[in-house]
Amino acid sequence: MKRGKIIGEVWAARKVGKLDGKRLVLVGIDGEDRVVVAIDTLSASVGQTVLVSFGSGARNVLAPGPHNRALVCDAAISLLEDGAT
């Protein structure tokens, strides 16, 4: 998982079947020069600090459990940060 900040949103009407209706956001990863497109199921707002899960961790955000391999998703917002020490 990586920590990052929501920097924008992506709208796409045509999506792979299982992603229909899911929101896509752009996340800038902390301390790294990269931007990731992630699925957001937690309704994060722009500017918010979040944790992004990748790979099978991302699929577990959308559909917990081992039998979720058909999801075409490699990044998802898994937590909206309220605080950190």
């Binding site: 998982m1 920590r3 199921t41 937690l42 309704s43 944790l51 899960s53 577990n60 955000v61 917990p64 998802a76 898994s78 937590l79 909206l80 940060e81 309220d82 605080g83 950190a84 020490t85």
Partner: peptide, 20 residues
């Protein structure tokens, strides 16, 4: 370095602690 927490999180995280 520290902990991270949030009220809104994926259901699979409940009961787990997150550290930076």
């Amino acid at each position: 370095e520290g902990a991270v927490w949030g009220a809104r999180q994926a259901s699979g995280f409940s009961g787990h602690k997150l550290l930076r």
